[in-house]
Simulated assay, not measured.
Amino acid sequence: MQDDESSLRRRFRDVITSEEQLRSVLGAPTDRAVAKVVRVIDEHARRFIAHAPFVFVASAGADGMLDISPKGDPAGFVTVLDERTLAIPDRPGNRRLDTFRNVLSNPNVGLIFLIPGVTYTLRMAGRALIVRDAELREAMAVNGKLPEHILVIEISHVLSHCPKCMVRSGLWQPEAWPDTSNLPSFAEMLVAHGKLAETVEQMQTIIDTGNRDRLY
C-alpha cells in the first residue's frame, strides 16, 4: 500500500499533507457549521429519516478498505429505536455482505440519508452491530417477508449537510440530467467486469427475474 501511495504522489507536484495547508487556502469553518453537529437523533432528524427512502452506508474493513453501500425501501424504512439508536433492515441482495463483513471487524459506520426533491441531506456516524432479534425483524417486515438481519447503529454524530452539491449537480432537476443514451446497462457491466459466460441479453433476463421475484 505504501508503494502505491508513493507512486501516486510522484504523479503530482503540489500534494497537501496537513490540515494546516488546507486551512491556509480554505480558512476555518463558520461557527454554525461547527455547532450544527448534535449527539442524538432529535425530532428534526427523526422527521427527515421518516421521509427518507434511501440511505448510503459507509463502512471499513480490518484492512482499511472502504465500502459505501446503498440501501433503499419505502420511505421511513429505517427505524429510530431511541434518541441514540436506529435500525436498518437487510433485504435480499447479491450476498456479498460487504457491509456486514466490515462491521464484524470494524463497527464504525457513516450514513447519508436522501429524500427525492430535497436538496439537503442528513449525515450520521456511529458504531454498528448485526442482530436477528425476532421482534425487531417482525416489526420491519414488508409484504409479509422478514429481513434476515438488522443493522443496528448507536449514533454518535448527527448533522445536516448543505444543499450546494445538490444545486450544482442538478440532481433533482430533470432538465439538468445528462444524456445517458451511451451509458452501459447494468447487465453489460456485469458481463464485462465479471467476464461472465452469459450474454448481455441472458444477464438482463436474470436481473429482471431477480427484480420481480426477490425484492423482499
Rank of each mutant, 00 (worst) to 15 (best):
A52M: 03
V200K: 03
R47I: 05
E198A: 10
T180N: 06
V118L: 13
M140H: 11
E5N: 12
N182A: 15
G64C: 12
L86P: 09
L104E: 11
L22E: 01
D208P: 06
D31K: 11
P147N: 06
D3M: 06
P74G: 08
V38K: 10
G76D: 10
I153C: 02
K164C: 08
R168H: 13
A62Q: 15
R32F: 09
M1E: 07
R96I: 05
H193E: 13
A75P: 11
A87G: 14
L22G: 03
F77Q: 00
D3P: 05
Q173S: 12
A187K: 00
I155C: 05
W172T: 03
G126S: 08
I150V: 15
M124Q: 10
R95P: 03
G27E: 05
R47Q: 14
V142E: 04
G117R: 01
V152A: 07
V191F: 05
R11E: 02
W172I: 03
G194M: 04
P107R: 13
R95S: 09
A60M: 15
D63K: 08
R91W: 13
H44D: 10
A75N: 06
R47T: 11
A33G: 10
A187Q: 00
R168D: 05
N106Q: 15
I155K: 04
E175K: 01
A33N: 13
C165E: 10
V40S: 12
C162W: 09
I130S: 02
R13K: 15
V109E: 02
A35Y: 06
R137V: 09
S160Q: 07
L8C: 02
R132M: 12
I41A: 06
V38T: 13
L183V: 04
E5S: 12
R84A: 11
D133S: 13
R9W: 00
V57W: 00
A197V: 09
Y120H: 13
R84C: 09
